[in-house]
């Protein structure tokens, strides 16, 4: 396992609230690492509505979800935050005390972090793969059914079935076909969302008899003690086909689930984290919650509220990171020291 990363603040979630918090922390000389399960920044804005216009970002009459994310990334660039994508924060351990806070955070990839403050900017929860409602599928998860590929070796010499028509399904079809004993791609129609060159490569493998493409939807599973033996595919005309299957990889997109946040010792109120509305601190000293994940009287789940919350949280975090130091209030317009940090002076 790699060595623990030591930093001032770890921000859980790289949605708009987490991204802007980097800016507010940076102005106060506080360094941050951001962790997100998604492979990219932007949270809901990037994952759910990149092309849709937002009309209520102060100062911008109209901005698309992705444009907002891109603008935030440019804005926080001077502070060189470190991003850790594709990593789910699993555990948060309190090592210190309210006077000398210290936390250990672990991500599912094995990386650990030590920091003096934590900002939970987890939004509606972590984006996680959707599970198809095939009866009994849970019994096979982690052994025969995988929603992501971590180790290619798990698939060597096996009957592999991949379900889906997007890039994930096609990429893994092409990557696993050479190692699998036999690979079947199951998709509900003969059209694919994925990149045209991947579709072409897949079709060539089918023509060459090196893999199979089956049009239809998975309806049931057969196996024993977590070991899958076969899956049944229903086609559009109602016909059923049983195909041998030891490894099943369904790709049905992502959905938001609260996830591990519930296990960090934070108070919860209907899946939200209650905070002090002046500092956005949770019930645990030096753990803060901003953006859609928090709750306080009058809370609105708006991006602009997340921005405000990050600014105020940073003020309190300063005192945990630099105990005893005085914090003077300054404007970016007129403070030469802030401008120096921003690299504009």
């Amino acid at each position: 396992m790699s060595e623990s990363i030591k930093t001032d603040v770890v921000i859980v979630g790289a949605g708009p609230a987490g991204l802007f918090a980097v800016f507010e922390l940076g102005l106060l000389d506080i360094k941050a690492h951001l962790i997100d399960i998604l492979p990219k920044p932007g949270g809901q804005c990037a994952e759910l509505y990149p092309e849709k216009p937002i009309y209520d970002i102060p100062g911008f009459a109209k901005l698309s979800g992705q444009e907002l994310v891109d603008a935030l990334l440019r804005q926080i660039e001077p502070f060189h935050p470190t991003f850790h994508y594709g990593e789910m924060v699993e555990s948060l351990e309190v090592l210190g005390s309210a006077d000398a806070p210290l936390f250990r955070i672990r991500a599912d990839g094995g990386q650990s972090f030590e920091c003096k403050a934590v900002i939970v900017a987890a939004g509606g929860g972590s984006f996680q793969p959707k599970k198809p409602p095939v009866p009994g599928i849970e019994a096979y998860e982690g052994k025969s059914v995988f929603y992501a590929v971590r180790k290619i070796e798990d698939f060597r010499g096996k009957h592999v079935v991949i379900v889906g028509g997007g890039d994930s399904a096609l990429d893994w079809t092409l990557n696993l076909q050479p190692v699998a004993k036999h690979l079947t791609l199951v998709h509900r129609r003969d059209e694919f969302r994925g990149a045209p060159h991947s579709v072409k490569a897949m079709r060539e493998l089918v023509t060459a008899g090196r893999m199979e493409l089956r049009l239809g939807q998975i309806s049931s599973l057969k196996g024993e003690a977590g070991e899958l033996a076969s899956v049944t595919v229903k086609d559009a005309s109602g016909g059923s086909h049983e195909i041998p299957c030891q490894r099943l990889i369904p790709f049905f997109g992502l959905t938001m689930k609260l996830g591990p946040v519930a296990e960090w010792g934070l108070n919860l109120h209907e899946n939200l984290v209650p905070v002090d509305a002046g500092t956005f601190e949770t019930n645990v000293p030096s753990i803060f919650a901003i953006g859609d994940i928090n709750h306080y009287p009058g809370k609105l789940k708006l991006i602009l509220c997340g921005f405000h919350e990050g600014a105020l949280a940073a003020q309190k975090i300063y005192h945990y990171v630099y105990p005893g130091k005085r914090l003077t209030f300054q404007y970016t317009t007129s403070s030469s020291s802030l401008q120096k940090k921003l690299g504009v002076n």
């Binding site: 409602p133 028509g165 997007g166 509900r188 129609r189 059209e191 939807q217």
Partner: peptide
């Protein structure tokens, strides 16, 4: 919409 329907379950005509 057809592309997104790939993410739905028990899709019918």
């Amino acid at each position: 919409e057809e592309d997104m329907l790939d993410f739905a379950y028990k899709v019918q005509p």
